[in-house]
Design a protein around this nucleic acid. Structure first.
Lengths: 238, 238
DNA sequence: CCAAAAGTGTTATCGCTACACCCATGA
DNA sequence: TCATGGGTGTAGCGATAACACTTTTGG
């Protein structure tokens, strides 16, 4: 059998990208969803998605889709997993390659895009989604919990200037747990990833909390090393 | 635009599965490759792969492909990543979902399958592979190194009965590093995952090393928890 | 001057690593 | 009896987590 024959007998399949987009506004952890504008499941909430264009690679397609609904480029974007149950899309078989993104919602606000009826939901009370999108979100949450326990990915959600209590609040939402602030502060400072600014944020306390910013060089250098950000990780990751 | 139109304008694409199959025979870490029987790149070495059948999900397709070239079912099989560069297959665009498997080569021997001209290579001197298969193998190696540093996946490569020196040897090959045997023994024993047998393996020393077997219940229970199997993991995982 | 958030100091414990040392046995 | 791989004991270090305590400042 020649290759042409071998390939010829095969069925071609639709291949889509779906993006699980997490955002943080400094207070709440959110997810960006779109109202589906066409059948099947019109007007249901879903992840932002789309089909792969002929000359795109997977990452490029995910970037394009992310840009279309957030106006953002160069944000944290990682392949999560591919989903391919034969009936996951009832209309026609579609393989979906899921990506997740972490973005600072403040950046997003500036370039709202209403074409897709995108809306931010609190992660904890997001609506039911179409197809297997809930499963994708669940997998993405687990992946983030796993990775963030040892690698500083959650910084991707923060604005340029942020306070350590803000960061702690973010970790507490991701792990749905209270963290001892005294140990947390020291742990984060000991990473050497942060540059302390002189300015303080007084919005949530009288004393005020110092602003910090990421030392990008150290951040990149240490991204792969193991830094324990939350106590007793095994309690939270399963 | 209706869904039918939206879907209709999209290009359907070939979707393949490729399996990175790692095996251990008690002494050497190996990879199973097949000689490609058709153009393009006929007679070059490649990973075992195939296209997805209409009613299969991704995992099922990977299981089938793995079974076809090893005769094995119910082995460790995990989705690695999807690869979709537009030109990765020069003949026609194909998205590939890569899986990796960990198997005990001794089990394999019993049911050799020559249809695919499959052959075991020492991992360290495998030939160059077609398309982006070398990249897949590299990614799989990294994934295994990462995961095995904290989770007991490498036990999947061992036969029912094995010795701790055998296990250590496996870790040393995976991480390409010497490990202190005295600490390794204690570490592994302290996991509580092993049941000590009375029999000894005298093939590699006069004193002999006790055989152990996995306590499957504890293995499953502790699979997700974090157990440090190798010293200073950050040195090895990057 | 009080409440409450931000942040520092101190200590006990645990796990890890390095390495000295002992054990078993076939040649 | 000795070489060799298998295995145990132990001590020091460093990271962690628990928690008492101090600092700051607006109301």
């Amino acid at each position: 059998m020649t290759a042409l024959n071998k390939y010829k007998n095969q069925k071609r399949i639709l291949v889509a990208i779906d993006c699980i987009i997490f955002g943080y506004d400094g207070e709440q952890l959110k997810i960006l969803l779109v109202k589906r504008g066409f059948e099947p499941q019109k007007d249901q909430w879903s992840l932002m998605g789309g089909f792969i264009e002929p000359r795109e690679n997977l990452y490029g397609a995910a970037e394009r889709i992310l840009f279309n609904c957030t106006g953002l480029k160069k944000v944290y974007l990682e392949q999560l997993k591919s989903f391919g149950d034969p009936d996951r899309d009832p209309l026609e078989r579609t393989i979906s390659v899921a990506y997740f993104a972490l973005i600072d919602i403040n950046k997003y606000r500036e370039q709202i895009n209403d074409t897709y009826h995108a809306e931010w939901f609190l992660l904890q009370d997001a609506p039911k989604l179409i197809f297997d999108h809930d499963e994708m979100v669940e997998k993405a949450k687990r992946r983030i919990r796993y990775k963030a326990a040892f690698h500083p990915i959650l910084f991707e959600l923060l604005p340029k200037k942020f306070t350590i209590p803000q960061l702690q609040n973010l970790y507490e939402q991701v792990y749905n747990a209270k963290i001892d602030n005294r140990n947390f502060i020291r742990k984060v400072n000991s990473t050497g990833l942060l540059i302390k600014l002189t300015e303080k944020d007084k919005s949530s306390s009288k004393r005020g909390a110092f602003y910090y910013e990421l030392d990008m060089n150290k951040y990149k250098a240490k991204f792969q090393s193991f830094i324990n950000f939350i106590p007793n990780p095994e309690n939270f990751i399963l």
